[in-house]
Amino acid sequence: MEFPGPLKSGLALLKEARPNVIPVFMGSRATDPRGKYMKSHVEYTDADWPRVLRVCPILNWTYTDVWKTLRGLCIPYCTLYDQGYTSLGGRESTQKNPLLRIVTKTGAEM
């Protein structure tokens, strides 16, 4: 199932469609902007969120762990990562990671 919009509203739509859903698997990592607030791999959402049990099996994975798994198992992912983005947020605020910039000998950016 897919729901449009931010995570909070998506979880609300999920609970409307499937009110008996309790656990929800998430790809959050401790180094993600909101991941640092997670105290364990499994915990309930905050009181002002739709009530689900967040299960974050990759919470303590490194960036390398994630990419070895994605590439090793041929798991599809957003192609923006191949274009130099390391974190995807809002359309207006997401920027390429300058450390991943590739410049040819002629000065053209790839």
Rank of each mutant, 00 (worst) to 15 (best):
R18W: 14
D32Y: 07
L11E: 01
M38C: 09
P19K: 01
R29L: 06
S28L: 08
D65Q: 06
F3E: 00
E109S: 04
G89C: 10
R51K: 14
T106N: 15
N60F: 14
M38D: 01
A30Q: 08
I75T: 13
T79V: 11
G10D: 05
L88I: 13
G107P: 09
R51I: 09
P98F: 01
P57C: 00
Y81G: 04
D32C: 09
R54G: 00
A17V: 05
W49L: 04
L100F: 02
I75P: 10
P57E: 04
T45Y: 03
M110I: 15
K68P: 03
M38E: 06
V24R: 00
R51E: 15
P33G: 03
S40N: 08
A30W: 04
N97S: 07
I75Y: 08
C74T: 04
T45P: 01
T79H: 12
L13M: 13
W67V: 10
L14W: 05
A17F: 12
G5T: 02
A12E: 12
L59I: 07
D46L: 14
R71W: 05
Y63W: 10
L11K: 00
R18S: 12
E16K: 15
D82T: 05
P33K: 04
E16D: 11
R91F: 13
P6K: 10
G72W: 00
A108D: 15
K96T: 03
C74E: 15
C56Q: 07
G27K: 12
M1E: 03
F3W: 11
V42W: 00
Y63L: 03
L14C: 12
G5M: 07
P23M: 07
R34Q: 10
K36Q: 06
I22M: 12
M26A: 12
V66W: 00
Q95E: 02
A12I: 04
Y85Q: 11
M26S: 15
P33L: 03
W61C: 07
Y81K: 10
T69S: 11
Y85R: 03
Y77H: 12
F25V: 13
F25M: 11
K15V: 02
M26G: 11
L13F: 10
P50N: 01
M1C: 14
E109M: 06
G89Q: 04
Q83T: 07
W61F: 14
S9H: 12
R91Y: 10
P23N: 06
R29A: 08
A30P: 00
T64K: 12
C56D: 03
W67A: 13
D48A: 09
D82N: 15
A47P: 13
R101Y: 08
K36T: 03
A17P: 01
K96M: 08
R34W: 06
P50S: 11
G72E: 08
L80H: 07
A17I: 00
L80G: 09
S9C: 02
Y77T: 07
P76Q: 10
V66I: 09
V103I: 15
P19V: 05
L88V: 04
G10Y: 05
G72Y: 07
Y77P: 06
T104W: 06
